[in-house]
Computed example of a mutant assay.
Amino acid sequence: MTLEEFLDHVNSGRLIEGGSEVHAFMHEASQEALRTLAELNGAYRSPDEVRALLSRLTGREVAESVTVFPPFYSEFGKNLTLGEGVFINMGCRFQDTGGIAIGDGSLIGHGSTLTTLDHAMDPARRADMEPSPVTIGRNVWLGANVTVVPGVTIGDGAVIGAGAVVTKDVPADSVAAGVPARVIRPTGFTG
């Protein structure tokens, strides 16, 4: 299986069956990501070195305007897209196998977790995984320790309060908070 075939599989939302060729490819690719992240997180890295390692992790050029404060964690890397001017604070964990796209100018607070895979509910099939992408719009601000679950889209300009667990889509230009997160008011700004 090639990376392109794997990405076609998960980006179409097809099941990753435990023990399958697709599952094996995912685990093998994870080892490459873990090696890159060990290098990223193992010592001080200049902003340029961080971006170079992120480019290796994602398989695409990361813009000079992107800032990531290590440590940073990703179990796959090759299905992660970072827009211009994205800032990711320390200790974030991205499970990007199912696809994570972060729009221009978005800020991700420290300790935030973005997940894109759900395991099967049937205990006999628990190793099966269903990929669902996470999409973060432009100029979004996730507070510290926000968790975003598979399949969620957060609209442009939205703000997510610290500690929130986002289980449903959040409209543009709104503030959401809580567990589970719910929209509490508009931001007062439209962009």
Rank of each mutant, 00 (worst) to 15 (best):
S174V: 08
L53K: 02
L57M: 11
I154C: 03
G109H: 04
G19N: 08
F87P: 02
I154K: 01
E32C: 01
I16E: 01
G178V: 00
Y73M: 04
V10I: 07
G137H: 00
V10M: 04
I184L: 13
D122L: 15
S106D: 12
I154A: 00
R93N: 13
T2M: 12
P180Y: 02
R35W: 03
A176Y: 01
D173M: 11
G188Q: 11
A124V: 09
S30D: 13
L82G: 03
G137E: 00
T153S: 15
A38S: 08
G151T: 11
R51L: 14
I136R: 00
R125G: 13
K168I: 02
H9D: 12
G19W: 10
R14E: 12
V68A: 04
A177V: 14
A177P: 13
P47M: 11
P71S: 14
R126V: 03
I100R: 00
H23W: 12
R93D: 14
E28L: 03
V50R: 11
G161M: 07
A101I: 12
V183C: 14
A101R: 09
P70E: 15
L37G: 00
E5K: 00
P180C: 13
A63K: 09
F25I: 05
G109D: 05
V62F: 05
R60S: 15
R60N: 08
M121G: 07
G163I: 06
A24K: 07
R125A: 13
L57Y: 02
P131E: 04
T36Q: 10
P150Y: 10
